[in-house]
Amino acid sequence: MRTFSLLILALILIFTACQKPQAFDYRSVKNVKLEKLGFEKSTLCMDLVYYNPNNFGVDLRKVDCDIYIDNHYLGKYKLDTLMHINRKAEFVLPSRIQVDMQSIFKNVLTVLFNKEVLVNVKGTTRVGKAGFFKTISFNYEARHKIDMGL
């Protein structure tokens, strides 16, 4: 009887621990820096601030995505490190983006004279809990105000 009770308890814990994680909430961008400037590719560094709305912590292992501004390719973002994210907490995702400069040169006037741009990020991430990871596709799209100081 005791073994059966432990089995039931273990099954309950497994089913409650395997809740589908909610998507992280984007909060802001901080510390934007141009790390490397080139004619073909440049490297842009920034800290992305997010909030984990889940009632449990998760581990973020990998992010691989493409970034578009007003439906024009900007560059690729990759993160390949293990990062623990606490439950119901803000966290900072250090980001390094390889920017395709040819795309920027083609669309610089559009970006300079618009007060808002459409940001679209498409990719995958590996998120897990207790050592079990799952690859999840995501597609973020939103309008963001920009201030170029003109």
Rank of each mutant, 00 (worst) to 15 (best):
Q19G: 05
C65Q: 14
S28T: 00
K88Q: 02
Y50I: 04
C45I: 03
R2K: 13
R96C: 02
H144F: 13
Y73Q: 11
K88R: 08
H72M: 10
D80Q: 15
P21G: 01
I85H: 01
T16Q: 01
Y77R: 05
A23S: 10
G123E: 08
C65A: 15
T125E: 07
D80T: 13
R87C: 00
A10P: 01
H72N: 15
L150V: 12
C65T: 14
K33T: 12
L48M: 08
V111H: 03
S5Q: 13
K62M: 11
L60I: 10
Q102A: 10
L93D: 04
N107C: 08
S28P: 00
D100I: 03
R27W: 03
S137Q: 13
L60R: 13
N54H: 11
D66Y: 10
K36L: 03
V49M: 06
K129S: 12
I146F: 07
M101K: 06
I14N: 07
T16D: 03
D59V: 07
Y77W: 13
T125P: 01
F39T: 10
L34W: 04
K145D: 10
K41S: 02
K78M: 12
D64I: 10
F132I: 09
I14M: 07
T124Q: 11
T124S: 14
V111S: 03
V127Q: 08
G131I: 11
K78S: 13
D47Q: 02
K62I: 05
E116S: 14
V108K: 14
M148R: 09
G149E: 09
T110N: 15
F133D: 11
N86F: 02
K33A: 07
K134S: 13
Q98N: 09
K88H: 01
Y26C: 00
P94L: 06
V119H: 09
M46G: 01
H84Q: 14
D64Q: 14
Y51T: 03
F24Q: 04
A89M: 00
Y50G: 03
D25A: 04
L82V: 10
V58K: 10
R126N: 13
N54E: 10
G128C: 09
C45Y: 00
F39M: 05
N114T: 06
V119T: 06
D64W: 08
F15P: 00
A142L: 07
S42W: 00
F15V: 13
T135K: 14
K76L: 07
V63D: 11
T16K: 04
M46C: 06
Y51Q: 05
V92M: 00
V127H: 09
G57Y: 09
I8C: 07
F39V: 07
E116Q: 15
N139S: 15
G128E: 09
E35N: 05
K106Y: 12
L112Q: 13
Q19D: 04
H72W: 08
L34T: 04
L44H: 01
S137I: 02
Y140P: 04
L7S: 04
I14K: 06
L109M: 12
A10H: 08
V32Y: 04
R143D: 11
D70N: 15
I8G: 04
L48Q: 08
K41Q: 05
G75C: 11
T124G: 10
T81C: 05
D100W: 06
F132Q: 06
Y51D: 03
V121Q: 09
A10M: 06
S42Y: 00
H84D: 12
L44A: 01
M46Q: 08
Y51F: 15
L34E: 05
A142Q: 14
A130G: 08
V127F: 07
D64N: 15
T110Q: 14
R87A: 01
K76E: 14
